[in-house]
């Protein structure tokens, strides 16, 4: 069921000529209860796919917004088991919406690749994005996830060029996540033409949907990205809204972003 949830979510939007909207949030920020409210509200606000951030003490690819969210979460005492229990709650309420865990390798390595994959499958997780596991290092986790019908989503960066692009794309699963800027999350604004070219190049090597994230903060940018990609990922803007004004306001923000992403090109 798991990987096919992802495929179905993209296909449903594509059938209408639309892009999927992927919403990222940090588990446990500011605490479990509040983050649960946001998580459970995301599908109704327009998120086609949800990325649940797993807090890590040393998130090297995150900008300040998500770094601070991770710290708030850890300070509130969030554990990996809590992240999985949030996932379970989500799965009970939303049987169709794909749920993807996003984070860093160490807390998973600590549990054990195989053991974590089993627990995640049980919690209803469909995919994982592990930022510091490039293809060269991801085999043990990819295998454990595959055994549990969970997709390990690969990241493609603007620096993934030449021979490396087809090599990285040869092992993709679920969808392809294109990192639109060389930088950390939530920082620079992506260049529309460069992103369109990159997505085009990626599509020469894979039939899977291509989603674009990093630096998409406003409905305008979301609309621009939706014009060239199968999915639009927004993270920092949602995390910032949650921090500033709470779950309800964050869901309103998600609605605006989702509407923009769903605009037919």
């Amino acid at each position: 069921m798991s990987i096919s949830r992802i495929t179905t979510a993209f296909a449903k939007r594509a059938a209408n000529g639309q892009s999927a909207f992927i919403a990222y949030m940090m588990a446990g920020d500011p605490d479990l209860l509040a983050s649960r409210e946001l998580l459970l509200g995301l599908p109704d606000a327009g998120a086609d796919i949800v990325e649940l951030g797993m807090p890590f003490s040393d998130p090297v690819a995150e900008g300040l917004t998500i770094q601070q969210a991770a710290q708030r979460s850890l300070s509130a005492g969030t554990k990996m088991a809590d992240v999985l229990s949030l996932a379970s709650d989500f799965r009970k309420l939303h049987p169709q919406t794909p749920l993807i865990l996003m984070g860093y390798a160490n807390p998973i390595h600590f549990v054990g690749w195989g053991k974590f994959a089993v627990a995640a499958a049980k919690a209803g997780v469909d995919g994982m994005i592990i930022v510091d596991l490039p293809p060269e290092e991801s085999e043990p986790l990819a295998q454990a996830l595959a055994d549990n019908d969970i997709a390990l989503i690969r990241l493609i960066a603007p620096t993934t060029i030449g021979d490396r692009l087809p090599k990285v794309l040869s092992g993709v699963c679920g969808f392809v996540y294109y990192v639109s800027v060389t930088g950390v999350t939530g920082d620079a604004v992506p260049d529309a033409e460069l992103v369109a070219n990159a997505v085009h190049n990626i599509k020469l090597h894979t039939d899977l949907p291509v989603a674009v994230g990093f630096g998409v903060r406003t409905p305008q940018t979301a609309k621009m990205i939706a014009a060239c990609a199968d999915g639009v990922v927004v993270g920092s803007a949602i995390v910032a809204a949650m921090h500033k004004s709470g779950a309800k306001a964050a869901c309103e923000q998600v609605k605006k972003l989702a509407d923009a992403a769903h605009c037919k090109a």
């Binding site: 490039p134 490396r164 990192v179």
Partner: peptide
């Protein structure tokens, strides 16, 4: 793969991998 036994490796974001 840059490994000393089970240790080492290249656990970096894809953006840095080509570098």
């Amino acid at each position: 793969q840059g490994r000393f036994g089970d240790f080492g490796g290249r656990y970096v974001p894809e953006t840095l991998m080509p570098l």
